[in-house]
């Protein structure tokens, strides 16, 4: 069975809640995979070491993980987070940036440190800036239907379907509303479908006279507008309809 891990970095757990919003299908999913690490959902492989002074009970990241879903940005100022992320990369075959915090930095791109009690936690990056990421699933949170499509494509090895996620991981770590505007509207490619406006989970995009206006005061750099815009890219799989 495919060994799956869920790793929680600097995140809000909304992405995992989204996965749980598979409702009646959740038990089915948990049966289709072997969830080998997820401190929120399960007790982990536990290593107990005992000395005269100390009993240490540690939950460790297992070896030979097939798919690691990493939720959250990485705080490069926190050595534990950095070490965990590197360990995840080493021990996992496929690393997925699960949600916008991991894919683009999302809300954490605003962080600038200075807050007690850890004022030195300053920099929170999309994980792809620290390790090689194979696929990115933006969205704050990414919708469950998209997560499931991805997981089942991965289980079936449907690389055609997975291609847009690979491209996003590679090319769109820095995108946001303004970036979409520059890539599409400022290139005379926007035809006013309104998809970006519907997708935007903060409602930062409003359509006027058939074109989007971006309220950058409300943009959290999640990148989902860019991901969904058909004038950025369309996968060939979209054209197979029944």
């Amino acid at each position: 069975m495919v060994r799956v891990a869920h790793v929680h970095l600097s995140a809000c757990t909304g992405c995992l809640i989204s996965l749980a919003d598979s409702y009646e299908k959740l038990p089915e999913i948990l049966e289709a995979i072997d969830l080998v690490y997820s401190i929120t959902l399960a007790d982990e492989k536990t290593v107990v070491t005992e000395t005269d002074e100390k009993i240490s009970i540690e939950r460790v990241y297992p070896d030979n993980v097939d798919i690691a879903l990493v939720e959250g940005s990485v705080c490069i100022d926190d050595e534990h987070s950095m070490a965990l992320l590197k360990e995840v990369r080493e021990k996992s075959n496929i690393v997925v940036a699960f949600g916008s915090c991991a894919a683009t930095g999302g809300i954490n791109s605003f962080s600038r440190g200075g807050q007690d009690p850890q004022p030195t936690h300053t920099a929170f990056l999309p994980i792809g800036k620290v390790i090689k990421v194979d696929f990115a699933l933006p969205g704050c949170a990414p919708a469950i239907e998209g997560i499931l499509n991805f997981i089942f494509a991965a289980l079936e090895g449907d690389t055609d379907y997975m291609l847009p996620y690979a491209v996003f991981a590679e090319e769109f770590m820095d995108t946001n509303g303004l970036d979409l505007a520059r890539r599409v509207i400022s290139q005379s490619l926007c035809m006013g479908c309104g998809t970006c406006a519907a997708a935007c989970q903060t409602r930062a995009i409003k359509m006027y006279d058939g074109k989007p206006n971006f309220d950058m005061d409300l943009c959290i750099n999640c990148g989902i507008c860019t991901f969904q815009c058909p004038r950025i890219s369309v996968s060939s799989t979209v054209f197979n309809i029944e």
Binding site: T13, I39, T40, A42, E53, K54, I55, I57, E58, R59
Partner: peptide, 13 residues
């Protein structure tokens, strides 16, 4: 003796 559990599980964070 000291007992250290890290991290605790089955909750958020």
């Amino acid at each position: 003796k000291i007992v250290e559990i890290k991290p605790t599980t089955r909750h958020e964070g």
